[in-house]
Design a binder for these strands. Sequence first.
RNA 1: GGCCCGUUCGUCUAGGGGUUAGGACGUUAGAUUUUCAUUCUAGAAACAGGGGUUCGAUUCCCCUACGGGCUACCA
Length: 507
Amino acid sequence: MSSERKVRVRFAPSPTGGLHLGGVRTALFNYLFARQHQGDFILRIEDTDQTRFVAGAEEYITECLAWCGMEPDESPNKPGAFGPYRQSERKPSYRQFAEQLIEAGYAYYAFDTAAELDAERQTQPNFRYSHENRMNLRNSLSLSTAETEALLSAGHPYTIRIKVPTDETVSFTDLIRGKVSFDTNLVDDKVLLKADGMPTYHLAVVVDDKAMEISHIFRGEEWLPSAPIHILLWQYLGWEAAMPAWAHLPLILKPDGNGKLSKRDGDRLGFPVYAMNWKDANSETLTKGFREMGFLPEAFVNMLGVLGWNDGTEQELFSIEELIAKFSIARVSKAGAKFDFEKAKWFNHEWIKGASTQSLLPQVKELLAEQGVNDASDAQIEEVLLAVKERLTFVSDFWAQASFFFQRPASYDLDAVKPKWSEEKTAFFQAMSISFDGFDTWEAPTLEAFFKEAIKESGMKMGELMMPFRIMLVGGKFGPDVFQIVQLLGKQEVIARMQLALKAFTA
RNA sequence: GGCCCGUUCGUCUAGGGGUUAGGACGUUAGAUUUUCAUUCUAGAAACAGGGGUUCGAUUCCCCUACGGGCUACCA
């Protein structure tokens, strides 16, 4: 049925806050599938719940997708043939379809207020609005036509609920899980149109997916229980032939304990859960994002792409282009996956190692500017980057790993040098400093050979002099190869640092 | 409680009726780096349990257990 159809998928986030891992992955799988089949990837905004709608969230979502390299073919901001894509802007058509369902006998007006239903739930622990009790509640099925008309014309608030059939089985083939079945006797009469005139998600997705000619639906597993409602709606609206194929993605779970990964877990365990920084306008709280933490979008996408999917080989590193080429729904796993931040870091490390120094430059310059370093040339920065790149897990580690290239050591690890310091060593470095001054070309290999030869002649041990030399230049026992540092620092700076350090060592 | 989905090393997973059950992250030990990190090599580490079916089940079926999701006029 859908094999002939043009592939058209949509990502449908609700603009209620930041975009978390699960959301981005759902978007990604939709995107990969669309690209793989030369189809369309559409962004549709679910904003009918006005009480939870958050200003700025829609723009935020668009930016997240762009950062990850996913450009929607049509979005709410670029109205296309199937727009508008905001649920709230499509209000009239939802009501029309809800009423169409009532006329066909597949739905009904329900006059019970939220408070009344809450009261029912208080007394009946397993209360469900369903075929078992709908005749005991206040709705157009239990009331006479005249009573219903009276309530309606009196302006009594009402909702429209689906009339789920009795003794039927709703089943469908999930692209990931195979055949899934539900007994309609256990499905309740969900609200389709709320008292405020807005549709619930159930009505809205079906109507919109039909209007947008969606061919495949990839959504989180948390939607599986409401799938029978959606399928019934496709049938009752007379659109069964146009129904999309379904695939329910496994959930991303907390790393420790159990349950769905939430924003709070990130705060608690010290890693981001949102793609980018999210600042809540009301509470003024800032939730850290992967982008700001120093993740490369390629690494982020790679990590998400293989969380619950693999290509069957031992390959782990994939570019988004490779993911598009190799993705297959059949290879998406069924079980939920616990999020592992250590592995996420590893992906980032790998992508930084593989990144060109040029591509890393803008972010590094920003970091340097934050530290007040503005006089370094691009060429200089790139050379340093080349030296320290493979040591970085995050781009933001750059300063910690390379500050000494741009700044003289603020302090020295004196405990490592002072106890064993001697006049002899002072003399050695003084002499070395004079010798260095005589060099016309300044290159690591020759300097290293010269330095080591001098040590040999002095009769002292290598370690006794190499270590202090490093500390003179960088302040401590860390950093790349000493002579690589020497070369990058340049003659004048090396000599100056030696002199400065000698004073500190002998003070 | 009810319904639905799931279950291979600590974690993400490959595999699939007969395998030394493979890889990656993490971890441990060595090597290299006269620093730290990287890197390299090696090691420890898993088929939830019970019944079937079968010559043979980790693989297929059933049950149990466990985990997760849903059970709103939220999505």
